[in-house]
Protein backbone atom coordinates (compact mmCIF):
# COMPACT_ATOMS: atom_id res chain seq x y z
CA UNK A 1 0.00 0.00 0.00
CA UNK A 2 2.70 2.44 1.02
CA UNK A 3 4.71 1.45 -2.04
CA UNK A 4 1.75 2.22 -4.19
CA UNK A 5 1.23 5.60 -2.52
CA UNK A 6 4.85 6.66 -2.89
CA UNK A 7 4.66 5.62 -6.49
CA UNK A 8 1.61 7.80 -7.03
CA UNK A 9 3.47 10.72 -5.49
CA UNK A 10 6.25 10.10 -7.95
CA UNK A 11 3.71 10.02 -10.72
CA UNK A 12 2.26 13.30 -9.56
CA UNK A 13 5.73 14.84 -9.44
CA UNK A 14 6.44 13.47 -12.88
CA UNK A 15 3.22 14.70 -14.40
CA UNK A 16 3.83 18.19 -12.98
CA UNK A 17 7.51 18.19 -13.91
CA UNK A 18 7.29 21.18 -16.23
CA UNK A 19 5.56 23.31 -13.62
CA UNK A 20 8.10 22.30 -10.98
CA UNK A 21 10.96 23.00 -13.35
CA UNK A 22 9.54 26.41 -14.29
CA UNK A 23 9.07 27.28 -10.62
CA UNK A 24 12.64 26.26 -9.81
CA UNK A 25 14.03 28.31 -12.66
CA UNK A 26 11.97 31.30 -11.54
CA UNK A 27 13.21 31.01 -7.96
CA UNK A 28 16.87 30.71 -9.03
CA UNK A 29 16.47 33.52 -11.55
CA UNK A 30 14.89 35.74 -8.90
CA UNK A 31 17.68 35.07 -6.44
CA UNK A 32 20.26 35.68 -9.14
CA UNK A 33 18.84 39.03 -10.23
CA UNK A 34 18.66 39.95 -6.53
CA UNK A 35 22.31 38.93 -6.11
CA UNK A 36 21.23 36.55 -3.33
CA UNK A 37 20.44 39.39 -0.92
CA UNK A 38 17.32 39.38 1.25
CA UNK A 39 16.54 43.04 0.67
CA UNK A 40 16.81 42.68 -3.08
CA UNK A 41 14.69 39.54 -3.19
CA UNK A 42 12.01 41.32 -1.18
CA UNK A 43 12.20 44.20 -3.60
CA UNK A 44 11.68 41.96 -6.65
CA UNK A 45 8.72 40.21 -5.04
CA UNK A 46 7.17 43.42 -3.75
CA UNK A 47 7.66 44.91 -7.21
CA UNK A 48 5.90 41.91 -8.70
CA UNK A 49 2.86 42.49 -6.49
CA UNK A 50 2.94 46.23 -7.12
CA UNK A 51 3.03 45.84 -10.90
CA UNK A 52 0.41 43.10 -10.87
CA UNK A 53 -2.21 45.11 -8.94
CA UNK A 54 -3.52 47.34 -11.77
CA UNK A 55 -3.28 44.41 -14.20
CA UNK A 56 -5.39 42.04 -12.15
CA UNK A 57 -7.93 44.81 -11.46
CA UNK A 58 -8.13 45.58 -15.19
CA UNK A 59 -8.45 41.89 -15.96
CA UNK A 60 -11.30 41.50 -13.45
CA UNK A 61 -13.07 44.41 -15.11
CA UNK A 62 -12.62 42.66 -18.46
CA UNK A 63 -13.80 39.30 -17.24
CA UNK A 64 -16.91 40.65 -15.54
CA UNK A 65 -17.87 42.23 -18.86
CA UNK A 66 -16.92 39.28 -21.05
CA UNK A 67 -18.48 36.66 -18.79
CA UNK A 68 -21.75 38.46 -19.42
CA UNK A 69 -21.06 38.68 -23.15
CA UNK A 70 -19.66 42.18 -23.64
CA UNK A 71 -16.12 42.69 -24.94
CA UNK A 72 -14.47 45.58 -23.14
CA UNK A 73 -11.39 46.87 -24.91
CA UNK A 74 -11.97 50.25 -23.28
CA UNK A 75 -10.35 49.19 -19.98
CA UNK A 76 -7.34 51.38 -20.80
CA UNK A 77 -9.54 54.44 -21.24
CA UNK A 78 -11.64 53.65 -18.17
CA UNK A 79 -8.49 53.38 -16.06
CA UNK A 80 -7.06 56.59 -17.45
CA UNK A 81 -10.25 58.58 -16.84
CA UNK A 82 -10.46 57.28 -13.28
CA UNK A 83 -6.78 57.96 -12.58
CA UNK A 84 -7.32 61.54 -13.69
CA UNK A 85 -10.68 62.02 -11.99
CA UNK A 86 -9.52 60.44 -8.75
CA UNK A 87 -6.43 62.63 -8.70
CA UNK A 88 -8.34 65.84 -9.46
CA UNK A 89 -10.87 65.21 -6.69
CA UNK A 90 -8.20 64.18 -4.19
CA UNK A 91 -5.99 67.14 -4.97
CA UNK A 92 -8.89 69.61 -4.80
CA UNK A 93 -10.53 68.24 -1.69
CA UNK A 94 -7.40 67.03 0.03
CA UNK A 95 -9.06 63.72 0.78
CA UNK A 96 -7.63 60.53 -0.68
CA UNK A 97 -10.81 58.63 0.25
CA UNK A 98 -12.95 61.07 -1.74
CA UNK A 99 -10.49 60.69 -4.63
CA UNK A 100 -10.81 56.91 -4.45
CA UNK A 101 -14.60 57.08 -4.53
CA UNK A 102 -14.46 59.55 -7.41
CA UNK A 103 -12.19 57.20 -9.33
CA UNK A 104 -14.56 54.27 -8.84
CA UNK A 105 -17.60 56.42 -9.70
CA UNK A 106 -15.99 57.66 -12.92
CA UNK A 107 -15.07 54.08 -13.82
CA UNK A 108 -18.70 53.07 -13.32
CA UNK A 109 -19.83 55.98 -15.47
CA UNK A 110 -17.45 54.85 -18.21
CA UNK A 111 -18.84 51.35 -17.81
CA UNK A 112 -22.29 52.86 -18.19
CA UNK A 113 -21.20 54.52 -21.44
CA UNK A 114 -19.91 51.21 -22.79
CA UNK A 115 -23.07 49.38 -21.69
CA UNK A 116 -25.29 52.10 -23.13
CA UNK A 117 -23.65 51.92 -26.55
CA UNK A 118 -23.11 48.17 -26.81
CA UNK A 119 -26.02 46.73 -24.79
CA UNK A 120 -28.67 49.44 -24.93
CA UNK A 121 -28.12 50.67 -28.49
CA UNK A 122 -26.69 47.31 -29.64
CA UNK A 123 -23.69 49.03 -31.20
CA UNK A 124 -20.44 47.37 -32.07
CA UNK A 125 -18.59 46.55 -28.86
CA UNK A 126 -15.09 46.96 -30.29
CA UNK A 127 -15.94 50.41 -31.61
CA UNK A 128 -17.57 51.40 -28.31
CA UNK A 129 -14.40 50.41 -26.45
CA UNK A 130 -12.19 52.24 -28.92
CA UNK A 131 -14.29 55.38 -28.56
CA UNK A 132 -13.76 55.24 -24.78
CA UNK A 133 -9.99 54.86 -25.20
CA UNK A 134 -9.69 57.78 -27.59
CA UNK A 135 -12.06 60.01 -25.63
CA UNK A 136 -10.16 59.29 -22.40
CA UNK A 137 -6.85 60.41 -23.89
CA UNK A 138 -8.44 63.59 -25.24
CA UNK A 139 -10.42 64.52 -22.14
CA UNK A 140 -7.65 63.84 -19.63
CA UNK A 141 -5.09 65.76 -21.70
CA UNK A 142 -7.40 68.71 -22.22
CA UNK A 143 -8.28 69.18 -18.54
CA UNK A 144 -4.86 68.26 -17.24
CA UNK A 145 -2.99 71.10 -15.54
CA UNK A 146 0.61 70.97 -14.44
CA UNK A 147 1.68 71.64 -10.89
CA UNK A 148 -1.20 70.00 -9.07
CA UNK A 149 -0.19 67.84 -6.13
CA UNK A 150 -1.85 65.70 -3.54
CA UNK A 151 -1.89 67.79 -0.34
CA UNK A 152 -2.03 64.64 1.77
CA UNK A 153 0.57 62.75 -0.23
CA UNK A 154 0.14 59.19 -1.55
CA UNK A 155 -1.71 56.49 0.34
CA UNK A 156 0.31 55.17 3.26
CA UNK A 157 1.62 51.68 3.91
CA UNK A 158 -0.46 49.68 6.38
CA UNK A 159 1.37 47.02 8.40
CA UNK A 160 -0.66 44.06 9.57
CA UNK A 161 0.84 43.82 13.06
CA UNK A 162 3.47 41.13 13.69
CA UNK A 163 2.71 39.39 10.37
CA UNK A 164 4.45 42.22 8.59
CA UNK A 165 7.72 41.43 10.36
CA UNK A 166 8.12 37.97 8.84
CA UNK A 167 11.19 38.14 6.59
CA UNK A 168 10.48 38.42 2.82
CA UNK A 169 6.91 37.03 2.86
CA UNK A 170 5.69 39.43 5.55
CA UNK A 171 7.19 42.42 3.84
CA UNK A 172 5.69 41.39 0.51
CA UNK A 173 2.21 40.29 1.60
CA UNK A 174 1.36 41.95 4.91
CA UNK A 175 2.88 45.36 4.53
CA UNK A 176 1.06 47.09 1.72
CA UNK A 177 -0.95 50.13 0.79
CA UNK A 178 -4.76 50.11 1.10
CA UNK A 179 -5.77 49.62 -2.57
CA UNK A 180 -3.32 46.71 -2.84
CA UNK A 181 -4.92 45.06 0.21
CA UNK A 182 -8.36 45.76 -1.25
CA UNK A 183 -7.31 44.07 -4.50
CA UNK A 184 -6.05 41.00 -2.66
CA UNK A 185 -9.48 40.76 -1.00
CA UNK A 186 -11.34 41.44 -4.22
CA UNK A 187 -9.80 38.52 -6.15
CA UNK A 188 -11.34 35.70 -4.06
CA UNK A 189 -14.52 37.74 -3.62
CA UNK A 190 -15.10 38.07 -7.35
CA UNK A 191 -14.26 34.39 -7.79
CA UNK A 192 -16.82 33.43 -5.14
CA UNK A 193 -19.48 35.69 -6.60
CA UNK A 194 -18.91 34.35 -10.09
CA UNK A 195 -18.90 30.65 -9.29
CA UNK A 196 -21.04 30.28 -6.19
CA UNK A 197 -23.91 32.75 -6.34
CA UNK A 198 -27.10 33.25 -8.31
CA UNK A 199 -25.66 36.36 -9.86
CA UNK A 200 -22.57 34.47 -11.02
CA UNK A 201 -24.47 31.57 -12.55
CA UNK A 202 -26.77 33.96 -14.38
CA UNK A 203 -23.83 36.06 -15.57
CA UNK A 204 -22.12 33.03 -17.04
CA UNK A 205 -25.34 31.80 -18.63
CA UNK A 206 -25.99 35.20 -20.22
CA UNK A 207 -22.47 35.29 -21.65
CA UNK A 208 -22.65 31.78 -23.06
CA UNK A 209 -26.18 31.46 -24.36
CA UNK A 210 -28.30 34.57 -23.81
CA UNK A 211 -31.52 33.22 -25.29
CA UNK A 212 -31.33 30.21 -22.98
CA UNK A 213 -31.11 32.59 -20.03
CA UNK A 214 -33.99 34.67 -21.37
CA UNK A 215 -36.28 31.63 -21.71
CA UNK A 216 -35.89 30.91 -18.01
CA UNK A 217 -36.71 34.46 -17.09
CA UNK A 218 -33.23 35.97 -16.64
CA UNK A 219 -32.98 39.50 -18.04
CA UNK A 220 -30.05 39.47 -20.46
CA UNK A 221 -30.00 43.24 -20.91
CA UNK A 222 -30.20 43.84 -17.15
CA UNK A 223 -27.39 41.41 -16.35
CA UNK A 224 -25.14 42.93 -18.98
CA UNK A 225 -25.71 46.49 -17.76
CA UNK A 226 -25.01 45.42 -14.19
CA UNK A 227 -21.80 43.58 -15.06
CA UNK A 228 -20.36 46.20 -17.37
CA UNK A 229 -20.99 48.96 -14.82
CA UNK A 230 -19.51 46.89 -11.98
CA UNK A 231 -16.53 46.09 -14.19
CA UNK A 232 -16.12 49.78 -14.86
CA UNK A 233 -16.00 50.37 -11.12
CA UNK A 234 -13.13 47.88 -10.79
CA UNK A 235 -11.26 49.53 -13.68
CA UNK A 236 -11.85 52.79 -11.78
CA UNK A 237 -10.17 51.26 -8.75
CA UNK A 238 -7.20 50.38 -10.97
CA UNK A 239 -7.05 53.98 -12.18
CA UNK A 240 -7.19 55.33 -8.62
CA UNK A 241 -4.41 52.92 -7.71
CA UNK A 242 -2.17 54.41 -10.40
CA UNK A 243 -2.61 58.08 -9.50
CA UNK A 244 -3.25 57.92 -5.74
CA UNK A 245 -1.23 54.93 -4.60
CA UNK A 246 1.54 54.15 -7.12
CA UNK A 247 2.61 57.55 -8.45
CA UNK A 248 0.91 60.22 -6.36
CA UNK A 249 0.14 62.47 -9.30
CA UNK A 250 -1.44 62.34 -12.73
CA UNK A 251 0.56 62.19 -15.92
CA UNK A 252 -0.62 62.18 -19.52
CA UNK A 253 -1.22 58.62 -20.75
CA UNK A 254 -0.09 57.23 -17.42
CA UNK A 255 -1.88 53.91 -17.98
CA UNK A 256 0.73 53.22 -20.66
CA UNK A 257 -0.93 50.16 -22.18
CA UNK A 258 -1.80 48.49 -18.86
CA UNK A 259 -5.45 48.22 -19.89
CA UNK A 260 -4.46 46.20 -22.92
CA UNK A 261 -2.02 44.01 -21.02
CA UNK A 262 -4.95 43.44 -18.61
CA UNK A 263 -6.91 41.95 -21.50
CA UNK A 264 -4.05 39.52 -22.16
CA UNK A 265 -3.97 38.75 -18.44
CA UNK A 266 -7.70 38.04 -18.51
CA UNK A 267 -7.34 35.65 -21.44
CA UNK A 268 -4.26 33.94 -19.98
CA UNK A 269 -6.18 33.56 -16.72
CA UNK A 270 -9.06 32.01 -18.68
CA UNK A 271 -11.69 34.48 -17.59
CA UNK A 272 -11.19 33.38 -13.97
CA UNK A 273 -10.18 35.93 -11.28
CA UNK A 274 -7.75 33.54 -9.61
CA UNK A 275 -6.23 32.56 -12.94
CA UNK A 276 -6.00 36.23 -13.85
CA UNK A 277 -4.15 36.89 -10.62
CA UNK A 278 -1.60 34.23 -11.50
CA UNK A 279 -1.19 35.71 -14.95
CA UNK A 280 -0.92 39.24 -13.53
CA UNK A 281 1.81 38.08 -11.14
CA UNK A 282 3.74 36.69 -14.10
CA UNK A 283 3.54 40.00 -15.96
CA UNK A 284 4.25 41.88 -12.75
CA UNK A 285 7.30 39.71 -12.24
CA UNK A 286 8.57 40.53 -15.73
CA UNK A 287 8.22 44.24 -14.93
CA UNK A 288 9.89 43.86 -11.53
CA UNK A 289 12.85 42.04 -13.05
CA UNK A 290 13.10 44.79 -15.62
CA UNK A 291 13.38 47.34 -12.79
CA UNK A 292 16.07 45.23 -11.10
CA UNK A 293 18.04 45.16 -14.34
CA UNK A 294 17.98 48.94 -14.36
CA UNK A 295 19.15 49.14 -10.73
CA UNK A 296 21.99 46.72 -11.44
CA UNK A 297 22.98 48.72 -14.52
CA UNK A 298 22.66 45.56 -16.60
CA UNK A 299 22.12 46.02 -20.31
CA UNK A 300 21.55 49.72 -19.75
CA UNK A 301 23.35 50.62 -22.97
CA UNK A 302 20.12 49.68 -24.68
CA UNK A 303 17.36 50.56 -22.20
CA UNK A 304 14.66 49.88 -24.79
CA UNK A 305 15.74 46.27 -24.78
CA UNK A 306 14.90 45.79 -21.12
CA UNK A 307 11.78 47.84 -21.55
CA UNK A 308 10.26 45.31 -23.90
CA UNK A 309 10.57 42.36 -21.49
CA UNK A 310 6.95 42.52 -20.20
CA UNK A 311 5.62 42.85 -23.71
CA UNK A 312 7.68 39.96 -25.04
CA UNK A 313 6.29 37.88 -22.18
CA UNK A 314 2.77 38.96 -23.25
CA UNK A 315 3.33 37.84 -26.81
CA UNK A 316 4.99 34.55 -25.89
CA UNK A 317 2.28 33.73 -23.36
CA UNK A 318 -0.58 34.60 -25.68
CA UNK A 319 0.91 32.77 -28.63
CA UNK A 320 2.23 29.80 -26.76
CA UNK A 321 0.04 28.95 -23.83
CA UNK A 322 -3.43 30.23 -24.43
CA UNK A 323 -4.28 27.86 -27.25
CA UNK A 324 -6.95 26.00 -25.35
CA UNK A 325 -8.62 28.95 -23.66
CA UNK A 326 -12.19 29.40 -24.80
CA UNK A 327 -13.96 32.71 -24.41
CA UNK A 328 -17.64 32.96 -23.42
CA UNK A 329 -19.57 31.92 -26.52
CA UNK A 330 -21.70 34.99 -27.04
CA UNK A 331 -19.16 37.78 -26.56
CA UNK A 332 -19.30 40.55 -29.10
CA UNK A 333 -22.86 39.84 -30.15
CA UNK A 334 -25.51 42.40 -29.23
CA UNK A 335 -28.62 40.74 -27.84
CA UNK A 336 -32.18 41.46 -28.80
CA UNK A 337 -35.31 39.44 -28.13
CA UNK A 338 -37.05 37.76 -31.08
Amino acid sequence: MSVKESKSIQQVLFSKRWWILTALILVIFTLWTAEFQEANTTAVLAGTLRHSTPLVLGAMCGLLCERSGVINIGIEGQMLMSAWGGFMVASTSGSLLLGLFAGIAIGMMMGGVLAGISVGLRGDQIIAGTVINIAAIGITSFFFSLGRTLPSGKTQVIKLGPLADIPVAGRVLFSNKPITFLTLLLIPTVWFLLFRTKWGLRTRAVGEHPSAAETVGVSVIGMRYLNVIMGGGIAGLAGAYLSLEAVGSFERGMTNGKGFVALAVMIFGRWNPVGAWGAALLFGYASAVQTQFQFRDWLTDDPQFIGIIPFVVTIVVLAGFVGRARPPASIGQPYSRE
Binding site: L201, R204, A212
Partner: peptide, 17 residues
Protein backbone atom coordinates in the same frame (compact mmCIF):
# COMPACT_ATOMS: atom_id res chain seq x y z
CA UNK B 1 -31.87 26.44 -24.87
CA UNK B 2 -29.16 25.01 -22.66
CA UNK B 3 -25.86 26.59 -21.70
CA UNK B 4 -23.27 24.14 -23.05
CA UNK B 5 -20.49 24.83 -20.52
CA UNK B 6 -22.67 24.56 -17.43
CA UNK B 7 -23.57 21.30 -15.70
CA UNK B 8 -26.90 19.55 -15.95
CA UNK B 9 -27.93 20.67 -12.47
CA UNK B 10 -26.90 24.28 -13.12
CA UNK B 11 -28.84 24.38 -16.37
CA UNK B 12 -31.97 23.00 -14.77
CA UNK B 13 -32.05 25.37 -11.81
CA UNK B 14 -30.89 28.46 -13.75
CA UNK B 15 -33.22 31.37 -13.04
CA UNK B 16 -34.82 29.58 -10.08
CA UNK B 17 -31.79 28.55 -8.06
Amino acid sequence: QLVPVLTVAENIVLGKE
